[in-house]
Design a protein around this nucleic acid. Structure first.
Lengths: 212, 212
DNA sequence: GTCTATATCCAGATAGAC
DNA sequence: GTCTATCTGGATATAGAC
């Protein structure tokens, strides 16, 4: 009893050890190239315990997905309470995505790129998960509130988030060496100006930046 | 000898039967959920013939990838010879991508979304495949030629292609019901205006489209 | 070149002692 | 709750007749 950890805390520890190993392996090798023995080796938890806690391999993937999406969801909620305008909210969302990519690329990769429906039976594609749905909703709200020009909501959402998500893809694939946070201002200004009503643009300046 | 097909043509037929089955199954189930017996059933070609022609399962995936990428590559070449300005070329590229998504979604899905490095050992990620690289090159050329504002090339490419690719993702995931070709004009005008030097914009109009 | 029948392997999953 | 030892199915891939 002296050096053992209290039971509930030890349970949580085992779970997080497994999930930490899983996110790393799923990102590096993919779900199907990761065997349970791989997770045993990486996490230090025995196969028996893994099955006890997660039921099966899919259970590990599902728990991981729920954990990661839950975290992002709560980040989004914070953004919505802290900011009032659509402009500020979208800016904060893109900032969040770029920073998450830099700080926890494995997490971002698992949420964004993994083909979840290939191994999570009956799961909706990640793009319809709550956070993504909320992100698109923000745009619709902005349209109703007069900040965003009238257009097909899908198109508006693609204009605002598409460029950032594209950069994230390339960054995760190792094709961009620059930290994406450096691009935040550029990408944001262009994306927002593309959909914003002129009145709510940051500056009206139709700038001609000529170098050299 | 009367009703049998000439040998080289029959070979090509078998290959295309297998590849047609593969693109369909890989799209629907994913590479790892597709077994060789599945391909046998879908293509009508025996397991022996498949191994004879493709060597192993990875060989099927590789042949498929090469075939599809080759087709897109030749489409891109045609675009480059037919159009001179970066504006026209990028427009044609986006048009091509959207139409391909509508006409051959399985093809598009396999090229765009499959995590090839998870099953094609030593393959570069799809985003660095020739067509994608050429698409980004187009933008750099436009920058050198004065059509596109000076900025990080990755950012410019993400602005031009990102929104379209995002719509394609959502469409492939079944989250958009409208044919993407309907959105071509909107998406194109916004994407291009975001990166173009004012002089080369389609119209300078800073439009306020108010509906309702 | 095409086919059927078969070998081999290793993954996911379980049993049951502690 | 955790572990080791074990089972079992089904996948990839091959052998060898035609």
């Amino acid at each position: 009893m002296t050096k053992s950890i209290a039971k509930p805390r030890r349970n949580a520890l085992v779970r997080s050890q497994v999930l930490d190993a899983a996110v790393k392996l799923f990102d590096q090798l993919g779900y199907f190239n990761t065997s349970i023995p791989d997770i045993v080796a990486e996490s230090g938890v025995s196969i028996g315990s893994i099955y006890h806690h997660f039921g099966d391999k899919e259970g590990v993937a599902r728990a991981l997905r729920d954990t990661l999406l839950g975290r992002v969801e709560s980040d989004l909620e914070k953004i919505e309470t802290r900011h009032e305008t659509t402009r500020e909210r979208c800016h904060a969302v893109i900032d969040l995505l770029l920073r998450l990519t830099e700080n926890e690329p494995s997490t971002m990769a698992y949420m964004l790129r993994a083909r979840h429906k290939e191994f999570l039976s009956g799961e909706a594609p990640i793009c319809s998960a709550k956070p993504m749905a909320r992100m698109r909703e923000l745009i619709s709200l902005g349209m109703a509130g007069g900040e965003v020009r009238e257009m097909a909501p899908d198109v508006a959402a693609a204009m605002v988030y598409g460029p950032a998500l594209r950069l994230i893809q390339l960054r995760l694939d190792g094709l961009i060496d620059t930290a994406l946070t450096e691009y935040l201002d550029d990408i944001w200004e262009m994306s927002w100006n593309a959909v914003a009503l002129p009145a709510s643009r940051e500056q009206i300046k139709v700038q001609a930046v000529s170098t050299a």
